[in-house]
Structure formats: C-alpha cells, structure tokens
Design a protein around this nucleic acid. Sequence first.
DNA 1: CGCGCAACCTGTCTGC
DNA 2: TGCAGACAGGTTGCGC
Length: 285
Amino acid sequence: MPELPEVETIRRQLEPRAVGQTIVDAVVLDPLWCAPRPPAEVEEALRGRQITRLGRRGKYLIVELDDERFLVMHLRMTGNFLWVAAADTEERRYLRVRLWLDGGARLEFVDQRRFGTGIVLDGTDALDEYLSSRLGPEPLEPSFTADVLRQTAKGRKAPIKAFLLNQQMIAGVGNIYADEALFRARIHPLKEAGRLKRDEFARLRESIVEVLNEGIQSFGASIDNYRDANGAEGRMQNRFQIHLREGEPCPRCGSTVRKMRAAGRGTYFCPRCQRAPRPARAKVA
DNA sequence: CGCGCAACCTGTCTGC
DNA sequence: TGCAGACAGGTTGCGC
C-alpha cells in the first residue's frame, strides 16, 4: 500500500522530530525484517548513532546516521513506521522493530504481513548502488519530463499499467496511483507502453505528478493498513476518482467503472474514457 | 533482455 | 457455522 505519497508523508512528519535524536537502543523482534543479516548485527549498527537526516527515494525511507551509514527501510504492503511518545505504553500488535530515542520517544516498525524490510548500508556509494539498481527516475523531480517517460517506454511491449508498477521505469508509483494517473490521462491500462502517442505521454506525466502531489497533500491513502507516522489515517482514499469505484459512475462521463486484472493486480478503469488498445474492428468486406 | 507469474506472510471476505 | 479459495496496496526470482 504505501506508495510514494505515503512514504513522503511519513518522512515529512518524522523529519523535524527525529533528526538530531540519538538511537539509544534498537530491538529487532522479527528476524525476517533484516534477513539475511542477523538482528544483533543491525541492532549493534544502530545503537548509539545519531539520526542526521531523513530521506526518501521511490518508496524507500532512508535514515541517515552519523557514521556514514544508512538505514534503508521499505514498508511493502502493510508496514507502518510510527513516532511513539514516551508516555505511550501501548503494546502494538505486529510490532517488528523498536528504536529507542534519547528524547524518550521511540520509532516503531509495525507490519502485519511481515513483508517490510530494513537494511543497513555503509557509505553513500553503497546507498547509491542499492537504490539506482532498483529505481528509475523520481517522478516529482523536474527532470521527469514527458520525453524521459517516452524514451523509457520506447519499444516496451508490457501494458502501461505494468510499466508504471515497474520501479525501474519510474520510482514510487504503485497500484493505486497508477490507476488514478491512467484514468486522469485517459489511457487504457492494457495499452502497450511503447505505443503511447506523444500527447499521451505528456498527459500521463502530468497525471502522475498531479496524483502523487494530491496524495502527499492528503497525507496518503488509507484503505486498510496504512497510517501516517502519528498513527492517523490519510485522506487520499476520499479523493479517488477511479480506484475501488467498481460499479459506480465515472466522474468524468458517467459510464460504469469496471474492474479488471492487469499486471496481476486489481485494476479499475472507465471503459469509455480509457479506450481499449485494440478495439474489435469489424472486418471490411 | 523483456515479460508474466508464483512466492513471500497474514488476515479478511466470498461462495458453497 | 465451517471451510477452502481468492484476494489485498510491493518486490523478487524464476522460467520461457
């Protein structure tokens, strides 16, 4: 669930409070979180370190430490990363990792499905290598232009929906925002990525930037598990135009919104606004 | 190399 | 009510 807007929301909320704090103790309760590295190794790397910066790349949250190391986390499907005040003694179910801070508060990684991960990387070279091997351009950077999108998609046969979900093509877009962006750009999810027209790439770039920014402004989308760093729900789910709206009228043309499977994921679209890639054509006699 | 799909893990919902 | 099966927002590895 957590896509770029959700991770950015958490980063922005934690930054003013966490930067400058020292991790006095770290406890990794679930070895799966940092596998194949043993919890003790990660705990030791974090203990005593000051947090100097909080960053984000795609859906990765990056905690910069004062010894040139980085804790790189991914929330995957159900991960939450919470700021917990000292007075809060609640024992959260699915707690995986706990970072005790010198100010008395703590950071808790909570994750029902246990897909979330954390890895400690040594130095900026290792960090850059880790991220750049996995991620394409940042869609909210000015360098993300329609032409970059077009060049990246050139020759690609995969459906545009699969293309958008591929983090090596564009970083940070997930199933929700892919649906929203394609709807707003009026592009069918199954259209071959390399076959989009210039104006479609232009609309798609605009739509991606628009929905991601809207997501950030709305503190992310809470469908099920997502909560921000304060444990609060986001509001972007109230602004969905197409996602999860099967059977409802399309907000643009009134046609009935449909659900299909694309790139192996539930995909919502308007059959009228997002025309099929190869409309069945009557044979010319 | 590109693409599709199963797998990772846990909980919830649907249909029989 | 019980239960098997499908499905859930992400990423990776494997087979073709």
